[in-house]
Amino acid sequence: MSLNTQINAHQTTTLDTFSQGVKDCIPTLLGYISIGLAFGVIAITSNLSVFEIFLLSVLVYAGSAQFIFCGLYIAGAPFSVIILTTFIVNLRHFLMSLTVAPNLTRYSPLRNIGFGTLLTDETFGVAVTKLMKEKHIGGNWMDGLNITAYLTWIASCTIGGLLGKWIPNAESWGLDFALIAMFCALLVLNLIDIGKSKLMHYLKLIALMAIILYILLYFMPGHLAVLIATMIVATVGVVTEK
């Protein structure tokens, strides 16, 4: 009992409320809005209608896959190729869901389907950062985070589509870089709370990641290299931990 109180005293635990989830989502919204707008603009130039842009962001809800969808669609790729590529590009979510899911098993199957359906790179990033800090995430918080991100994404993509006719060259605005910047910030936030002794271990793993990715990129497309390099380096992490 006294041990428990001691542990709790060292953690800054926030409430498991929907509104706290919404609040924790706000810093990522700029990223969703930038990338969503950029996507809408690019999709319009790829001959998708505004309604199709809306539908794609509702149904697929994955930034990089939606961009690749447009690229393949305008190139006239067969449907089978588009679907298979989308599958491979989004397969990393399997690992992300597997990482988050063990922390939410106390909720009903239906709510768990909800958590999984709305999992993205960014909500995953925010959730694991919270897990790293507080060792705990709640379902209401997760719903607040997920639903805010989802609605913002749909709105941004659709508005980007509506604006698309007036902004012909979205790339020159640098909006596409928002995604990389967000991953970078989430990576740093995850490393901050790791502790000094573990940090060295992680930095070595990141260096190894660069080498393995470089080699893999000779043999496979980038999204597949990301997936395989992640599994290799995580395995090395477990084997080399003290």
Binding site: R92, L95, M96, L98, T99, P102, D121, F124, G125, V128, M132, I180, F183, C184, L186, L187, N190, L191, I194, Y202, L205, I206, M209, A210, L213, L217, G222, A225, V226, A229, T230, V233, A234, T235, G237, V238, E241
Partner: peptide, 17 residues
């Protein structure tokens, strides 16, 4: 234990790629 490494690995992979 393996899953504990996934966040940092996947985020760094996405950035480095």
């Amino acid at each position: 234990r393996w899953l504990k490494y996934i966040p940092v690995c996947i985020l760094s992979a996405l950035v480095i790629e």
